[in-house]
Computed example of a mutant assay.
Amino acid sequence: MERKQPTDGGNGNHSKAYSIFLQVKAPMAGGISGFFTRALTQPLDCIKVRHQLQLEPIKKNIGAKYTSTLQTLVLMFQEEGIRGLWKGHVPGQILSITFGFGQFAAYDQFNRQSRKIKFFNEHSDMRHTVGGGFAGAFGMTIATPFDVVRTRFIAQDHGRGYQSIFDAFATILKSEGPKGFFRGLIPSITAIAPNAAIQFGTYNFLLEHYMKLKNEDKVSRHVILLAGTFSGTLAKTCIYPLDLTKKRLQIQEFHDNRTTFGQNIKTTGMLDCLRKTFAKEGFTGLYKGLAPAVIKSGMMSGFYFFFYEEIITAINKRL
């Protein structure tokens, strides 16, 4: 959202430090909001990933292990306990904080600099959309190693695989080299750039037009939450096949630690993965795990923007 930046009241002694703080408050708020959001939505993320990695259809009476969102939740709890629903939470938290910090740092800078360009200054919708896409790509690039580790923690069988996040990083580096940390980076960026573009563009479009309609200069908390939820749901639905592809690429070379829920797909890259998924599982295979994904994405986006706005507002009141 657009905001009028608070001033330092003309206190020149603190102007430099104050200016630096203004530059970091957006990414700081993004990182903190990412932390709270991840803590609330991790179980849905675990369910989504399990569905994405199961080649068999998410249906009953065909021998598949996971058949629905609720059934997966109950089964994971029965087999792995409450901790199983938060598998990969530590790397997931680092991912969310890193991604949130990087995304809002890039978004804030793009938003500031692009105002100097006449087109973007006159078309705020395009500024938010393009800025969101650029910010999402930047945030995902620096956060991908943690995404790979998080996905593998969720995918691995109970009692097998990595013992800790440090073990995961050491093992990947030793067995796969640095490139192992960036498996799925191309589909990640291909997915996150339009996802963030749609998310930021839709969110700001809804809030700006709501304020114009109501002739107000601010919006209430529930409107922020609803706008964020809708924008996240729409964005995830549009790019979902690429998210599924990313997850399947991230578990390549990890098949020995994942044997209890279905087959493993072997693929050489993004296009090959999409082709094989479509050939073996059909069009619906590209949308496996969509239900928990859109629920999680809608909640995550809603809480993400809600916490971000609350944190920024609290910071501004104290400046």
Rank of each mutant, 00 (worst) to 15 (best):
R3Y: 02
D8Q: 06
G10Y: 02
A17R: 01
V24P: 02
M28K: 04
M28F: 12
Q42H: 09
P43H: 01
K48M: 13
E56P: 04
G63D: 05
A64W: 03
T69Y: 00
Q71Y: 05
G81R: 10
W86H: 11
V90E: 03
P91I: 06
L95D: 03
I97T: 08
F104W: 08
F104S: 05
A106Q: 05
A106V: 04
Y107H: 14
Q113F: 14
S114W: 04
K118G: 01
V130C: 00
G131P: 08
G139T: 02
I142Q: 06
P145N: 01
T151P: 06
S164K: 11
A170Y: 10
L173M: 14
S175D: 12
G177N: 03
P178G: 08
A191W: 04
P194N: 07
H209M: 05
Y210K: 12
V219S: 09
V223I: 14
L225E: 10
F230Y: 07
I239L: 15
L242E: 05
L249S: 04
Q263A: 13
M270C: 15
C273V: 03
L274Y: 11
G289M: 07
L290T: 01
I295F: 13
K296A: 13
Y304I: 09
I312W: 01
T313Q: 04
I315E: 02
